[in-house]
Design a protein around this nucleic acid. Sequence first.
DNA 1: GTACTATATCAATAGGCATTGATATACTTT
DNA 2: AAAGTATATCAATGCCTATTGATATAGTAC
Lengths: 105, 105
Amino acid sequence: MKFKCCENKKAIADLSKTVEFLKVIGEENRLKILCLLKKGTRCVCEIWGYFDMSQNLVSHHLKVLTDFGLLLSEKDGLKVFYSLNKKNIKKYSKLLNNHLDLYEK
Amino acid sequence: MKFKCCENKKAIADLSKTVEFLKVIGEENRLKILCLLKKGTRCVCEIWGYFDMSQNLVSHHLKVLTDFGLLLSEKDGLKVFYSLNKKNIKKYSKLLNNHLDLYEK
DNA sequence: GTACTATATCAATAGGCATTGATATACTTT
DNA sequence: AAAGTATATCAATGCCTATTGATATAGTAC
């Protein structure tokens, strides 16, 4: 069995990116937001209302999630609608599972 | 599709536990240690040497991982050997994947 | 244009935690 | 018992970031 986690540049980069991903989703409010958005697209005020968080706090967490590429946003008039960036979430999930999967090879 | 993330006590507790798990593994040195231990049991000095971390820092991270239940330790003379607690890692991985899996149900 | 609504940004604060250096503990060897 | 080795703990520091309150921006309705 070859150890692949820290031996080459690709593996080290993957690990760093995985850690970033974990830090982004490893925050209670952000994980809640991701969970809610599994139901579908929501505007900021819906998220805010749903979780009883302050408006600026929700904005902050939405920005963190969006900046990292986990959410997509679309403006419609005054409202901004957020939705999951499923492609990227899937990508990072796979990266993570490479680390967590204990039984491969 | 029923939204299950924050609606009942079980779901909220699962989410909290998931966040804790993410915080524990979402640290570069700790994820590296987990990766190394996929190769098999290692004593502290081996881990320390492998990553060029200070001894007390390795001890600290090993403690965090062990306290959360991700590692098992066994003393043999002067040395302490650490290994993955695969059962628990698997348990938390499943919990996490419930959150990340976008396509279930 | 004025008032209002939805969202984002800014500045300040506070708490958590990774890191470090020093020291303690526990075991082994002589 | 004294010296050496492996690991753990303690105290202090500094950084990062979640949170808050206030304000700014941008669009809508009158």
